[in-house]
Structures are given as C-alpha cells and as structure tokens.
Design a protein around this nucleic acid. Sequence first.
DNA 1: CGGTCTCTTGACGGAGTTCAAAGCTAGTGG
DNA 2: CCACTAGCTTTGAACTCCGTCAAGAGACCG
Lengths: 199, 199
Amino acid sequence: MKMNSRLLKQYILQITTLSDPDLEKFAALFYNRNVGRKEIILQAGDLSLFEAFVTKGLFKVYHIDESGLEQILYFAAENWWLADLDSFNNQKPSQLFIEALEDSEIICISKAHKEYAYENIPGVERLFRIMTQRSHVALQRRMIENLSAKADQRYINFTKKYPFLLQRLTNVQIAAYLGISHELVSRIRQKVNGKKTDI
Amino acid sequence: MKMNSRLLKQYILQITTLSDPDLEKFAALFYNRNVGRKEIILQAGDLSLFEAFVTKGLFKVYHIDESGLEQILYFAAENWWLADLDSFNNQKPSQLFIEALEDSEIICISKAHKEYAYENIPGVERLFRIMTQRSHVALQRRMIENLSAKADQRYINFTKKYPFLLQRLTNVQIAAYLGISHELVSRIRQKVNGKKTDI
DNA sequence: CGGTCTCTTGACGGAGTTCAAAGCTAGTGG
DNA sequence: CCACTAGCTTTGAACTCCGTCAAGAGACCG
C-alpha cells in the first residue's frame, strides 16, 4: 500500500499543494487492486463504482459502436487516471469499457470516499478541478488535430507524443485510437520508417 | 446588469446549490460587455483575460491551422461559457480565436476575480469542477462519434443535437465544426431533406 | 446597383476502407 | 521441447467516400 500510494502522492504534489497530513488522509482512502491482462474492470451498462490511479501496467478506455467496432478514448499507463466521469459522478450506466492490456496494479477510490474527500480535505476539490481542466485541454487539442490533420500526420504526432507507448501497443490498438484502419497504420509505418533510414 | 446576471444565477442553480448571498456575491464579480457581429474577443497569441457567460447572441470558438483552415471547437449561444481554459488558467498565449457570429451580450469575469471567488465563496470551486467535467464528457462523446461515424451520420447527429442552432449557422461553419468540406454539407443536406419529404 | 458571401452542382482525383491471402510471432498444451 | 493455434502484420486490388476545383445562381449589404 505504502509503495503504491507513493506514486499518487508525487503526482498530486505536481498539480497542487496539499499538506502532508491531508495527503496521507487522502491516500488512505484508496485500496489496492491487481488486474490481469485482458481483464475488464468496467463494462458498458455497469455503474462505475470507483475511480483509479494506475501504478503499474497499461489500460485502454474504449467504446463499442452499433457495428461492433472499438473506438479508443485513451490509453492509461503509470501515473494516469482511469475513470468514466459520466458514470462515476452521475451514477448512471457507463457507455465505456476499461480493459487491462498488461498485468497491472491500480489504486482505487469509491464514490463515497471521494465525496468524503471533497467535503473534508481542503484542496481535493481543487485538485480534481485542475485535473479535469487539463484532460479537457488535451482532448480539445486532439479534437482539433483530428478535424484538421490527415491520417499519416496524426500517426506521426502520436508517435511523438507517446513514444513510450509505441512498443506496448499493437497496430490494431493504435488504429482504434486514431480512427483509421489497422492496414493503413501498417502502410503509414512502412512509409515513415522508410524515410527515417533514407539518409 | 441585474437583467443579465439573472440568466447566470439560474444556470448556476441548475448545477449546484449556492446560498443567495453567495450567489449575489459571485454575480457581482462579473461585468457586462456588448459584442458586435464579427468582433473577435480573443485572438491566438493573446492572453485570455476573462472568462465569459453568454446572455445573448452566438459565438464560435475555433483554431486556425498552418494552412489557414478553421476548425471550430464549439459554438456558444445563450447560457454557454466562453473560455480558453488553457490560456486563462495557466496564463499563457492562446491558440484559439473567439468571434461573435451575431450581435451579442456577455458577462465577464477576470482571472483575479475568479481566483477571489475560488478562495472566498464556498461552492464556486465545486461549480467549476462540475462544469468542466460536463464539458469533458460532452467532448468525449463527440470524439467517439468522430472516430466512428461517417460524415452524413455526423451531420444528422448535429442537427438532432443542436436544432436551434441550424438556422443561425452557415454551411461553412457547420462544415468547420464537423471537419468536412462545405460542399459535402450541402450535398448531405440535399440528400437528408429529400428523404424527409419522401413520404 | 455592384460586390461579397453563400449555396448548389458537376467532374475529377486522392485518401482511406474493405476484402482476401500469406507470412510472422508468441503463447499454450501435449 | 516441439507442434499448433491464434493473433498480429504486411501487401495487393477494387471500391467508396470525400476533398478540390470550377462555375453559376441566389441573397444580402452598403
């Protein structure tokens, strides 16, 4: 427990200031959970019972449309949060799936404990406001990029932004994130790698 | 002033509970501003000096890419907020433009006044956390839709979601929001309207 | 009235999808 | 430890969707 919450505390202090006792108090509200590869911790239709911080491993957060195709909203590796904001905050059925892509470890907080933290630990409300604002800004940027850039540019931007994820993901997963076919990812990769060694 | 802040107060009470005095105190931090059609109230490169709530009129919030093309992040009519979160909160140069599409009226709050509200009016921090979470959820849904649906379906969804905006927008603006060419918007509209009267 | 903006329509080309086949990799169980 | 399967990647070919270019026809404003 101590080991895993250390990452969380580091993360929080990068965002806002929280006194040491408050930090401990907040961290104590989380519980540990190990998640095996391919394990699904949230299904569409379920109520999201917890919000989680990833301390080890990798997840995909995705949607499945009427024709059965997967759209990946985001990947979450170490130091990322896993949540379906809509389902968790408004206590309504989720439209998303969350699945582990590797054997992983997360620390979780329940809805009740989070409400307790909002009410009783000064600065937690602020922490989550800032976190959400940051995700929102990041998503806005991705939206603009998707509206303007072609597939090959989007792939290149992805490799620049998440180089540490590249070898942990398959083409199929990257394709579902970029909104293109996996065959095209393969072709773009060939083209891009070709250029690299063309010196 | 009284007239315009009434809309704001109504809006806030739909989201969270705020005591009457606190509501007044918060509303008093805003100032009125009239904005003429085609007036630009934020330019890329500028620092965003205020956050605004629209009480009358219509705006577009957009980005311009290297090739000079416009991508519209969102439209804001009555009861919507105008903000470049990144620029306003982190006090760095904006990457966005905000322009009035009609003669409009907004009420604005400065960075300093907003910080004051966060510190001194209980519930304001919570208000903005919830607002940001909601926008984020909405943007996530739009992202998923853009990843999966084809142009005609996206157009249809747009008309269902924002019927009240349709007659206030041009095809060019809708196209810049959907990420397609305005010629295609025209063609899709023909096709869809054709089907409607095909009874 | 003249200029600017918008909408529509057609023709063409290019980007990306779909389908299919084959090779490759890695995990699994006998 | 090898054989087998299942999933991943690559490649080609046909097809579809959509963007671009171009031109004409309203609509609106000064």
